Amino acid sequence: MATTYMMNNFLVSCLMFFVMIGSLSANPADIKAICGKAKNPSFCTNYMKSNPKTSGADIKTLATITLGSAKTSASGALTKFQSFATKETDPALKKGYTSCVEQYKNTISSLDEATKSLTSGDGPGLNIKVSAAMEGSTTCQDGLAKVKADPSFAKDSGDFQNICGIILVISNMM
């Protein structure tokens, strides 16, 4: 009977220890610190405030949420470029939009790889893959600037770059 009591005490103590350790690693991320290091702090602050899921999120959850936003943004851009490439009659613009379709396909592929890095807790890998995703967007924008495309693409690209910039800050904190 005493052995059972001691064993139960030991198990309860172990359980408490693991609960305490788990709660330490799930501390809310310091959004103010993250946004202070972002390329565009006001965009970051507005982005964080606009998404209620970010409030109280730990660093990995915040990275997951932000990476999801980057994927949504890139997928939306891809769809938009595919539509414009299909309908465009000007050869130079059509070539620019078609190039962007390929760039954004690569961007989405890089973001998928970034998700794998995030899942495994690989902050440096996350950083590298998100940086690669940003490169696709930048290459697209550079090409469109040469053919004087619709200016709304520049805003969309800027938002995507800002979201990815937040992920880069987070990846450096992991």
Score class of each variant (00 low, 15 high):
G158L: 07
D30H: 03
N51Q: 08
K116S: 11
E88A: 12
G36S: 02
K80D: 11
L118E: 03
L11T: 14
C35D: 00
G143T: 07
A85W: 03
N162H: 10
F153C: 08
P91V: 08
E135I: 09
Q161E: 13
S117H: 05
S13Q: 14
A26Q: 12
Q103D: 13
G165D: 02
A145S: 13
K94F: 06
L118W: 01
S120L: 03
G76C: 04
T72L: 06
L78T: 01
A145K: 12
Y104H: 15
G158V: 04
S131C: 00
M1L: 15
P124Y: 00
F84W: 12
N40Q: 10
S69C: 06
D112F: 09
Y47V: 02
S73N: 10
D112Y: 08
D156I: 05
T54G: 04
A145W: 10
T138Y: 11
Y104N: 11
K60F: 11
K87M: 13
S69M: 09
L11E: 13
L24A: 11
F81V: 00
D30P: 04
T107Y: 07
M16A: 15
Y104P: 06
N40Y: 09
S152L: 07
G76S: 11
F81G: 01
A145M: 14
M6K: 14
V130C: 00
A38P: 00
A154R: 10
T119D: 08
Q82M: 09
L144H: 08
S50P: 08
D156M: 07
V130G: 01
K146S: 12
A114P: 03
A63Y: 03
M173F: 04
D142H: 13
S110E: 12
K49T: 12
T66D: 03
T107W: 09
I34P: 00
M20S: 14
T66M: 01
F153A: 06
I128S: 05
T98E: 13
Q141P: 08
K39A: 13
N51H: 10
C100A: 15
G121L: 01
Q141L: 15
D112H: 08
F153H: 09
D122F: 00
Y104G: 07
D58R: 09
I128C: 00
T86R: 13
S42L: 10
L67C: 02
I65L: 02
M134H: 04
A154W: 06
S13L: 15
D122E: 02
K94T: 07
T64K: 14
D122A: 00
T86Q: 14
K37D: 04
